[in-house]
Design a protein around this nucleic acid. Structure first.
Lengths: 342, 342
DNA sequence: CTGAAAGCGCTTACAG
DNA sequence: CTGAAAGCGCTTACAG
């Protein structure tokens, strides 16, 4: 097992100083073209790579971002919301394009997440992601802010929240999907998903939903709003209970696609048909939404743009610039579960 | 913006040397209990955290693992297979429990992945994951091996492959699910999924499938095997073509759940019913498999155990110990899409 | 354009 | 049990 080459080895072989090697490898214009080429050739041959620990230590930065996913704890770690996994994909890509590595962690696996990344110089900044219980981690956000950690979070757009939030326009999404259902003639509605400040995103969707109903002169039925976290199980349980109590709304607006998938199963098991007996809509447009039966009408959040915006704003913070909360547009995706004609 | 505290600051405040601070913080038994407590209290108060770059540089290790996901490139980065995302979850957890951080990257975003992690001391070892085209990266594996990089890969169990592979018993899974369908009376079969060495896992499942048929005295119909990569789209397209050609097998064994979901949609659109007209089975048991309509019969790969095994074996390699390829058991999960009685 | 030297913040062998 | 010192492998101000 040969020892790893260092910049001194290269310097020795090239007959120059180690400083020159370092400069050449970083494409410093100070180095003679010829010298630079020679050094690079030797580096390639030796399979030399700059030691990141040394380089980062010297430069006092890590060129790494940390992504922390906090989700409602579930029994099974496989139940990570596909929406956030899409985000993970786009964030990974956006970081890579900016020349940053991405460290990933799940909140439920590490209680000390709020202090562990930037303070140890493992990451230059932190991205927070999740549909978790907002109240549970509000204190931690405040602490992050006190410590002057660089972070951005995906979530509800709200000036009161600590730190900088990026998110889609949840109110508008809830409004649009409800408005569409109204246009199809539906008149009585259930809303499946937590509608309080513990889940600010769901709450905003709910408010949009209610607003659309009121604009149409319909009074929201409070007993048809049922809490659910973003899992199939939770949606299934909530709708199952609703149906067993004898409720038969025309349509169910679900706060996420996973909830909607669980809802459709409960409706099917009750011997009812989607959308003929009850229309169902979701939220997020996860990949499987196109392939449910019937295909799910939903509100698309553009994860590619979202990931880019998160990384871009975080890097702005890291570089000492100003970053602002940002509200991104949503897009209604009409498929069959809402009862729209083919 | 206060400068970050260093071990010298702590030493100064505690009235001891910096060496002693370092020892105390690492719980060295050499340090007096009282001194240690005092130092730790000060560290907590200053919100001091050991600088990882410095510590790693000195110790010549990173306490970080890298996870590389290589997937068949798709137009949309949201289409990461949920199965691998479950793996990501369990690998993250297993690394955290072992005291390692996890760096995540997607192959399609970085062509140089094969050399970039361990050589730069950013990671002590690498985990490779994906249903990608095996031939595409075989050379890279060989290169990794030459460079004496520590790595393990999830995939087909095969002595010929470079490096150490961990994987589930794909042959047995293909066998079991086919055997189950035979027991339900199905006699003519399609197999949807690549059946050649570019996709060794799918190929092994196919071989198990064929073996079960032969044991039952049934000759596999080669024209009913259709290639597909692990996406809903690909499964949909393959089955669509099959049905348009007029084929009506009793059952379709799909090489992954995503393929099966696409297959069921194609079957539905052709005016046929699952499982009455055509039974369908998947592979992986992704979370949504329980919530398709009908619920999907599939072969479960235990991602929790898999993630733990990957991390455990990789760390063994990192520590200079022996690690062995490993074949893990699978479990048949019977739901409704196979036509089993309730 | 190039080199000698300092220093990033730790860990640990060495000496006491 | 504690301290002074070397050194991990780089980057970069300084001098030429």
């Amino acid at each position: 097992m040969k020892a790893k080459a260092t910049s001194f080895d290269i310097a020795h072989m090239a007959g120059v100083s180690q400083s020159t090697v370092s400069r050449a490898l970083r494409d410093s214009p100070l180095v003679n073209q010829e010298t630079r080429d020679k050094i690079k050739a030797i580096a390639r041959e030796l399979n030399y790579k700059v030691d990141k620990n040394a380089s980062n230590l010297r430069q006092q930065q890590s060129r790494t971002l940390a992504l922390l996913l906090f989700e409602d704890p579930t029994t099974d770690d496989s139940l990570i919301n596909p929406f956030f996994l899409s985000m993970l994909g786009s964030i990974t890509r956006a970081s890579a394009q900016a020349g940053y590595d991405l460290l990933v962690s799940f909140q439920n696996f590490s209680d000390d997440w709020h202090a562990d990344y930037e303070d140890t110089n493992k990451a230059d900044g932190i991205i927070l992601l999740g549909y978790g219980d907002y109240m549970d981690y509000r204190d931690k956000l405040t602490k992050l802010e006190e410590q002057e950690t660089h972070f951005v979070r995906w979530g509800a757009f709200d000036k009161e929240h600590p730190g900088i939030s990026l998110g889609c326009d949840n109110f508008q999404g809830g409004y649009d999907v409800t408005d569409h259902l109204l246009g199809l003639g539906h008149r009585s509605f259930a809303f499946i998903g937590g509608a309080d400040s513990r889940a600010p995103e769901f709450f905003a969707r709910y408010k949009g939903h209610v607003s659309a109903l009121q604009n149409a002169g319909i009074t929201p039925q409070k007993d048809l709003q049922r809490d659910a976290i973003s899992t199939e199980e939770s949606g299934y349980a909530a709708v199952n209970a609703l149906l067993r109590e004898g409720h038969r709304p025309d349509a169910m607006v679900c706060a996420s696609d996973l909830i909607a998938i669980g809802a459709m199963q409960a409706i099917n098991e009750a011997g009812l048909t989607v959308p003929d007996d009850i229309a169902v809509t979701g939220y997020d447009d996860i990949p499987v939404a196109r392939f449910t039966h019937p295909a799910l009408t939903t509100v698309k959040q553009n994860t590619t743009l979202a990931g880019e915006a998160l990384v871009e704003n975080l890097l702005r913070l890291v570089n000492g610039d100003q970053a602002d909360a940002q509200l991104m547009p949503v897009e209604l995706v009409i498929r069959r579960s809402c009862g729209a004609p083919e």
